[in-house]
Design a protein around this nucleic acid. Sequence first.
RNA 1: GGAGAGGUGGCCGAGUGGUCGAAGGCGCUCGCCUGCUAAGCGAGUAGGGGGUGUAAAGCCUCCUCGAGGGUUCAAAUCCCUCCCUCUCCGCCA
Length: 415
Amino acid sequence: MIDPRLLRDDPEAIRTSLTRRGSKVDLDALVALDTELRSARQRAEELRARQKEIGREIAGLEGEAKEAAIAGVAQLASEVKETTGEVDRLESDFDMALLEVPNLVAPDAADGFTEEDNVEIKRVGEPLTEGADHATLGEKLGIVDTIRAAKVSGSRFGYLKGKGALLEFSLVRWAMDHLVAEGFTPMVPPVLVREEALVGTGFFPEAREQVYEVPRDELFLAGTAEVPLAAYHTDEILEGGDLPLRYAGFSTCFRREAGTYGKDTAGIFRVHQFDKVEMFVFIDPQDSAAEHDRLLAVEERLVGELEIPYRVVNIAAGDLGASAVKKYDIEAWFPGERRYREITSCSNTTDFQARRLRIRMKTDRGNEVVHTLNGTACAVGRTILALLENHQQSDGSVLIPSALVPYTGFDVIEP
RNA sequence: GGAGAGGUGGCCGAGUGGUCGAAGGCGCUCGCCUGCUAAGCGAGUAGGGGGUGUAAAGCCUCCUCGAGGGUUCAAAUCCCUCCCUCUCCGCCA
């Protein structure tokens, strides 16, 4: 949620951002609604103040004088009820409209509206010019089974098997160890969350169709640990000295992948369920931009240690999620497809989530909404696929990068 | 799943219709005293919105005692619905 004060202090800043995103939000209607709401609120408050004042007088009266006073204020009471009802209606309209407004795009976010407009920042590593694709490799090595997964769960699911399953646990622990060394607190959060957590993180209302629901219990399956980690401090006022708070959350992630029919149907590149280690940070607003770069640096070190060629892209404004002001993706090279594809991502969501979740910090200037950031440390499934493709050998085996061997206990996966 | 208890400010905890945004305690902040990792004394200390103000301060005002609705001139206090937490029993990874 953006700061509603901006609507009257600097609506043009919002307009610029909406334009860069290609957003359809009706800013003028929102500004008008805000104005209407405030004047209605003013009227209601004046009436209510009078009512309370008279109430205090009545408290001191007795007998007939009291009866008369009570009779005299009945009309005022009904006016109060009417005007506050009006304020409530306007307020709820306003709140709903405000939830639809995406965060203000950062000045240095890339311009444009689609993936095509993402700006490449750098490339690292020597890409292989050819190789088998991950679906073929996974099947031949006997470590990924999507055929039987379809029987059990439908499309876009997979079994990891044998060394593939062990590789998963190795990656999780390897990533966690790195993050702990970086000062992150490891967490295993709930993956079933309330609606409030999803609204608070900005996934609702924008991306509601991507989220699995458990209606009977009014819970939702989180698509990322970002959701329970962000909501962890809901309604809290953090001590300035405790910031930044850095969490590393491991969770299984669930995504409906609605609207992706026909995309990435082979293998387990795009699946409904995968595991991920996610970084999440609560920080003083003035430090969030620097922290964003820091998260990217952590991600680069991790991918680099796996000896996977990659590039970093600055995501185009129109391709950003509602909560992000700026986002970097790391795209790993996939020789089977001869292209770079997203394996991690990190976003600065500034005060957007924190305001919705009411997470503040104490400062000399009073309480201030904190900033939050999130970044992928290791999306396990995709990382396994990137390892398979980039470390495949001519004999059909796959070598495990040396950084991982202490965790896997083996250095090669053979057919 | 069954039975019961309870949700009040950073924490604990009083408050069953009016002057209560709320006693008291703890914690914290500032000051005094003492001179020594303490005790004592005094003051301050919930959050949020709107208005006014160049800004800070200040001032005016409204909302918030789990959430929502209702009764009433007036609700932390009465009524209804919901949510959550805890305890015991049952079941269970």
